[in-house]
C-alpha cells in the first residue's frame, strides 16, 4: 500500500469516470478483440440456441424463432479482464429470462454453463443471468453484431467481466452445482465481478 511506480502519473486523465470499476480504463471508440480460438463462421440458416439441463423441457430456437421473441435491449458499460472498459454501449437481443421462462427452470438449478459453437464454455451463477441482467445479443449499436465480437449472437452479461459473455453462444445448461468453464479452468475467477476485481482464482 502506498507504494507507487517511480515517475508514473497516468495518462493525464481528467476526472476519473465513475462508471469505471477499479483498475479499468476507458478504451474509447476502440473495441479490442480477445479470443483464444479460430473465429468461426456461423451461418444463421443453421444457427440454433438451446436451453437444457435442469429444465422442465429443453427448448431450442432457430434464428427466426428467437427473433420472434420479445425484443430486449441493454444500454450501459462493458468491462474486460484485460483492463479495458467500453462505456455507453447498446446491445439488442432477447432477455435470458424469456428463454429460461420458456424452458422452465427446475428448483434445484443454481448455476448455468454457457456454451459456444466453438466449444468455449463459461460458468455463471443462475442469479447472474436472471432478473433482466443477461441477454442473447445479436445487435450492437443498431447493427448486426460483427463476427469478431461474437456474431451472429453472443451471451451478454455486462455486470461481469466480459469473458462471461460467451461469443458465438449456442446454449445454456442448467446445473445444480458450479462447473468451471474454459477460462475458469485456466486460472480465471468463477464469478468475475469487475467492481470486486474478481479477475483470477483466489481474488
Amino acid at each position: 500500500m502506498g507504494r507507487f511506480t517511480r515517475g508514473f502519473s497516468g495518462r493525464g486523465q481528467k476526472e476519473r469516470d465513475l462508471r469505471l470499476p477499479p483498475g479499468q480504463y476507458d478504451t474509447g471508440d476502440r473495441w479490442p478483440v480477445l479470443t483464444a480460438e479460430v473465429t468461426p463462421r456461423v451461418d444463421t440458416a443453421t444457427w440454433s440456441f438451446t436451453v437444457d439441463g435442469l429444465v422442465a423441457k429443453p427448448a431450442t430456437w432457430s434464428w427466426d424463432e428467437i427473433h420472434a421473441l420479445p425484443a430486449s435491449t441493454f444500454a450501459g458499460d462493458i468491462h474486460c479482464v484485460t483492463t479495458w472498459s467500453k462505456l455507453g454501449v447498446n446491445f439488442g437481443g432477447v432477455s435470458i429470462d424469456t428463454l429460461l421462462g420458456a424452458a422452465g427452470v427446475q428448483p434445484s438449478a443454481t448455476h448455468v454453463l454457457a456454451r459456444s459453437s466453438t466449444g468455449y464454455t463459461t460458468n455463471l451463477p443462475l442469479a447472474d443471468v436472471t432478473g433482466d441482467k443477461a441477454w442473447v445479443a445479436w445487435e450492437y449499436e443498431g447493427k448486426p453484431l460483427p463476427v469478431e465480437h461474437g456474431g451472429p449472437a453472443r451471451l451478454l452479461v455486462p455486470h461481469l467481466y466480459f469473458w462471461k459473455s460467451a461469443k458465438w453462444v449456442s446454449g445454456l445448461q442448467l446445473l445444480d452445482h458450479d462447473e468451471p468453464g474454459f477460462w475458469e479452468r485456466n486460472g480465471y475467477h468463477d464469478r468475475g465481478d469487475p467492481w470486486l476485481e474478481q479477475r483470477y482464482q483466489g481474488d
Binding site: R3, F4, T5, F8, S9, G10, R11, Q13, R16, P22, G23, Y25, T82, T83
Partner: peptide, 14 residues
C-alpha cells in the same frame, strides 16, 4: 504489470 500513480490511479497490462 501494474503501474501506480501517487494519487492511487493504476494501469495494468498483460
Amino acid at each position: 504489470v501494474r503501474l501506480t500513480a501517487p494519487d492511487g490511479y493504476t494501469a495494468s497490462r498483460s
